[in-house]
Amino acid sequence: MNKEYKGLTAPPFTWTKTSETPEKVHEWIKPIQDVSSSEIDDADVVMIGIPLSRSSISASAASEFPDAFRKSWKGFATYNLDDDVDLSTLSVIDLGDTKQHVTNIDLCHENITTAVTDIQSCHSKPLQISIGGDHSITAMTVKGIRNAHPDKKVGIIQLDTHFDLRDPNELGPANGTPIRYLIENELIEGDHVYNIGLHGFFNTKALKEYADKHGVHYTTMRAARKKGLNTVIEEALNELSVKVDVIYFTCDMDVLDMSYAPGVPATTPGGMRTDEIFEAATLIGTHPQVRAMDIVCLDPKKDMADMTVKAGTHVFLSFLSGVALRK
């Protein structure tokens, strides 16, 4: 490994390469141990794992997802039949996991920000994908991007059941607070947040009022289906593209209906179907201003038959399909 990043350790799990012409994902994505610094500079995408869930409000082993995610690769081909695109045309490099502390959440968050700042400062070309972890990681990842690029405005497109606007002063640096943390620390503007997929009885009226006060844009799952989910996403991307320099896509897996995603800490009825989230991720991936994304709140310990782990990996590959379609 020619490059070490602050706050980051090498991938804890890697696959042995068995083919020079990869057909499966585990044969295609390269670990940092196998590449040079120049290869990272020229990569299309770099990914990191963020195995943190001690900051989750509800009991969660989402910290286990980066490991389960890597191990699931063997079950997926690089070819996407739906979009007739082969992801092996992209260069994707796994840079490893952010360093963790057993009890100090603030230090874990500091390591996330430090790692992202270092990666963003060193490499201007690759998109960055973060595999969580709970949703608190989004605030620290965006903070790292802003540290590296203080002159660039960042906007957020968020697929989520929740606003994630709870008060950090009450809950600390938790998974229910990342969007409010970013707004109140002036790292983003409320008007630059587009949340799609909220539904049911899982947000308080006070959070809705906070969103209204700060200009947060939101579309419920019911309203998105009536208008057309793709239409809502396209409108959000178009509006964001004239307001900000960088669009960040955060995908909270609890946006899925509980029948599709038993392995999320806050599973709920009334959410998205898997086909909807896959199509949404592909569409978001096609937009040239989307430069980073994360997948959060997926607990393999709660999962059944790897249903949710496979769905999470499918979201990752669907997003990359969109990135490949840019070309």
Rank of each mutant, 00 (worst) to 15 (best):
K6E: 15
T14N: 05
K17G: 06
P22W: 13
H26P: 00
I29G: 08
S36M: 04
S37T: 12
S37W: 09
V46G: 02
P51M: 10
P51L: 09
P51S: 11
L52N: 13
R54A: 13
S56W: 04
A62K: 00
F65E: 03
S72V: 07
G75M: 07
T78W: 12
D84F: 04
V85T: 07
V85F: 10
I93L: 01
G96F: 00
K99S: 12
V102D: 11
V102S: 12
N111I: 10
I119S: 00
Q120H: 04
S121P: 02
C122S: 14
S124R: 14
P126T: 04
Q128P: 02
Q128T: 11
H135A: 12
V142M: 14
G144H: 07
A148Q: 11
G155Q: 11
I157Q: 02
D160R: 03
T161Q: 08
D167R: 07
E170V: 09
L171H: 08
G172F: 03
Y181Q: 15
I183K: 07
N185C: 12
Y194P: 15
I196H: 15
N203R: 13
A206K: 09
H217W: 09
T220W: 07
M221R: 15
K227N: 05
L229Q: 06
T231H: 06
T231Y: 03
T231V: 10
V232L: 09
E239I: 10
L240I: 01
K243G: 09
V246T: 12
D252F: 02
M253L: 13
D254S: 04
V255Q: 10
V264W: 01
M272L: 11
F278V: 02
T286Y: 11
M293V: 01
P300I: 08
D303C: 02
M304D: 08
D306M: 09
D306A: 13
A311F: 04
L320D: 00
G322Y: 07
V323N: 08
L325F: 04
R326Y: 09
